[in-house]
Design a protein around this nucleic acid. Structure first.
Lengths: 353, 353
DNA sequence: GACTCATCTCAAAGCGCTTTGGACATTTGC
DNA sequence: GCAAATGTCCAAAGCGCTTTGAGATGAGTC
């Protein structure tokens, strides 16, 4: 059933039916009700392509996620982010179109996306520190929101991000307060902006207590279980091993825990661990008492926020770049405790904020 | 730059330009080259909505994934599946549109999707044992491929699935061969078809050796780390605890491992574990020697396969329902070993296939 | 009764593309 | 040499919708 048929059936013009359905005022109330009833009865749904062609809007949002042939990992965070964003899209009647793109082929792709015209806006995932996509998209004139930021970019653009620096600096300060001095960082790939910020937070907290960072205690890589395991195993083997670990993801933390156990140590007593917890739906951090002490920020909420922002920008072209900085909570779990006796030095008491 | 402008610029009609670009034969070679050069020069990309309207095809595929307000978990397998499917779509010039739908609202949604006309086909995720979506989609006349099967549906439809029953029956048989008799199953939700099949495989292997299944050793739930942990903890507490676990996902297996360690036991020596490994990109099962003995089947490959099938069905309406059954490998890792001495009974030797 | 307003409705243009049904020129077949 | 076939191009219709500009209709005003 299309508009023409529906109109004919109702003995009305397409114009009137269209207006009735789209809430225009110049339609008599009784007519409108009659039209709506018929539309329901015949299960009429306007053809999206035709509607899009006529209105110039596609009612869908593009999510572009980068992949690379080498590190061919799909960020596990993605599913939850999408779930959050979807809530907003469903409410607003938007669709979500997903595009995976190999590193490097991005310029052509974004241009294509714009010219094809099948999305009204874009969500950019996984920004690097300097990310050419941002300038490109600004040029293209397609509304976009970045999930994360790009530290090296000075131009203004819209983003939603977690305060990674603050979260990791708080976590580090907390470990220091517990008496830890040898604190290891198992980070994500540090050309990714979020990972860079996390390290920055970690270093700043060390510096605040005049602790010299030890390169041997810093590792970065794809945030897999293996990375956590290997890093922790190697570090625990050092002559002067760490008494605490800070990791960038739950999966990595699980690897760290494995290495700790294999070393015959107990997490939370012999070695402390703090991880970042994205609140992924399939990786809950314990139930009553969290398994891991963690900096926690829901990536699903971030997705929701980003989508809301983008929709707002589409509705109001001039609302200018929007920003949203989400603060992570520091939640206490069973994986942290005072530094083992041998290592305890009275820490400078520090106000936690 | 649109077709009209491009045509005008070239002093040609839209017809000719369109034909030149779409490879129709009735265009002189030199004209075609001239057109192609200009298209490249001006970065011409046809508008997808207009093209879709004219051709009646949208050049995109819908992925519909069910969520429920209650168990609001996004299947972590999803990211990898999509990655596989994307490979096919990119090659064929298709887009992927993603829709999350709450349980129950599906009928209306699928009908809408068809009438909106913004996808040419659908991939159905996470089928239940009896799944109304399949009959519905058949009625709607929209090509679709199911990732998984629905045991209670007799009608023919297209699917890609892993041979869950065989995989779990082999895994169970292998454990029996190692001397295990008390074998626990920590499964996914059993109204999900794949989980049902896995239990079926498990039970059949037990039955083949005349081992009576013990309800106390069977658990099902969302495949989280917590499920694995709680199930294993409870079971290891039994008077007659299991000596081996079969779990439906890596994440769950990690929870089982945790419980084993907390019980002061060693995985692979005191207690054996076999898990199913979807080869998720962020959850590699060890490196040289796998951490877990596992039934392994790449969900990414399944995605690729499903997408290829769907594209074929779209290209050739009459190619009829297609099926693809993927066999899982049984790979040996460090998590299995002979049943502890006390429990060893000489097993009937069984041919593994 | 002639006038203006509202109110309601419609025909038709247009969104950017494909595709049908020729038109015209050039070859080919006999 | 002429009809038929072929090669190359175009004008125009149509995909299903929205939206413009204007035409009816009836109520209110002088």
């Amino acid at each position: 059933m299309n508009l023409k048929e529906l109109a004919h059936h109702l003995n009305l013009s397409q114009t009137t039916v269209s207006r009735a359905l789209n809430g225009y005022p110049e339609v008599k109330k009784t007519t409108r009700l009659r039209v709506e009833a018929a539309a329901r009865e015949f299960n009429y749904t306007p053809n999206a392509r035709a509607k899009g062609l006529a209105t110039g809007r596609s009612m869908s949002i593009g999510h572009v996620i980068p992949t690379s042939a080498k590190r061919e990992m799909v960020n596990p965070v993605f599913g939850d982010f999408i779930t959050g964003a979807s809530e907003a899209y469903v409410q607003a009647g938007y669709d979500l179109v997903l595009t995976l793109v190999e590193d490097g082929k991005e310029e052509r792709l974004y241009r294509n996306i714009r010219d094809k015209g099948n999305v009204d806006g874009i969500i950019v995932h996984s920004p690097r520190m300097q990310d050419s996509r941002i300038a490109l998209l600004s040029d293209l004139g397609l509304p976009f929101v970045v999930h994360g930021r790009a530290s090296d970019i000075t131009a203004d653009y819209s983003w939603v991000d977690m305060n990674s620096r603050r979260a990791f600096s708080r976590a580090t300060a907390f470990l220091i307060e517990l008496g830890h001095r040898r604190i290891a960082l198992v980070n994500g790939l540090e050309f990714m902006d979020f990972a860079f910020r996390r390290r920055d937070g970690y270093l700043s907290a060390l510096a605040a207590q005049a602790i010299t960072p030890d390169p041997a205690l810093m590792r970065a890589g794809e945030m897999t279980e293996l990375l956590g395991h290997q890093s922790a195993r190697d570090m625990l083997d050092l002559a002067d091993p760490p008494t605490a670990f800070l990791t960038s993801s739950m999966v990595t933390a699980i690897g760290v825990r494995r290495a700790i156990q294999e070393a015959g140590l107990e997490m939370g007593r012999d070695v402390s661990v703090i991880t970042h917890d994205d609140e992924l739906s399939y990786l809950k951090n314990g139930q009553d008492v969290p398994l891991f002490t963690a900096t926690r920020s829901s990536v699903r909420a971030a997705g929701r926020r980003a989508a809301d922002m983008l929709l707002q920008m589409i509705a109001d072209k001039d609302c200018g770049p929007l920003h949203s900085l989400l603060e992570a909570e520091l939640i206490l779990g069973n994986s942290t405790g005072p530094a083992p006796a041998a290592d305890i030095k009275t820490p400078y008491r520090q106000e936690r904020t």
